[in-house]
Computed example of a mutant assay.
Amino acid sequence: MLQKYETLLLMSPELGSEARQELLDTVSGIIDRDGGKVLVVDDWGIRDLAYPVQKVMRGYYTRLEYALPGEAVAELERNIRIADGIFKFMTVKLAETYEPEGE
């Protein structure tokens, strides 16, 4: 059963657009591989941080909304933790079940 999640990624501001897209493709590929579906990719751009994170005061924010089986979220987060270029993330469950519209 798919559940609806949202993950906010904070990436290094020094990454180029190609490197950021490659990271997002990797994360999206993991979601697809584990039987999920990416619903929304929302780029917020570079923003100032409230406090330094790893001595950096700015970060590139991207919000992902997706449907994924609950047991696959741990694997997704493990891959995000080891990815170079992502230095913070937060995952929130939006809905207990995901019902695709029109299906």
Rank of each mutant, 00 (worst) to 15 (best):
S28T: 02
S28A: 05
S28K: 04
G29L: 02
G29A: 01
G29T: 00
G29F: 02
G29V: 01
I30R: 02
I30L: 15
I31A: 00
I31Q: 00
I31L: 02
R33Q: 11
G35E: 06
G35F: 04
K37I: 14
L39A: 01
V40R: 15
V40K: 15
V40F: 11
V41P: 00
D43F: 09
D43L: 12
D48A: 11
L49Y: 08
A50D: 02
A50V: 08
Y51T: 00
Y51L: 06
P52I: 05
P52H: 06
V53Y: 13
V53T: 08
V53W: 15
Q54M: 13
Q54T: 07
Q54Y: 14
Q54H: 10
V56Q: 15
R58K: 15
G59K: 09
Y61K: 04
Y61A: 06
Y61R: 04
Y61W: 08
R63Q: 06
Y66K: 02
A67V: 04
A67T: 01
L68Q: 05
P69I: 14
P69S: 08
P69K: 08
G70D: 04
E71S: 09
E71D: 09
A72E: 14
A74N: 05
A74M: 08
L76M: 12
L76R: 03
L76I: 05
E77A: 07
E77M: 07
R78G: 04
R78C: 11
N79K: 12
I80K: 09
R81H: 10
I86G: 08
I86L: 10
I86T: 10
I86N: 09
F87P: 02
F87T: 01
K88I: 06
F89D: 03
F89W: 15
M90Q: 12
M90K: 11
M90A: 04
T91A: 14
V92Q: 04
V92T: 12
K93W: 13
A95D: 15
T97C: 04
T97P: 00
T97F: 14
T97R: 15
Y98A: 10
Y98Q: 02
E99K: 10
P100W: 13
E101A: 11
E101I: 10
G102C: 13
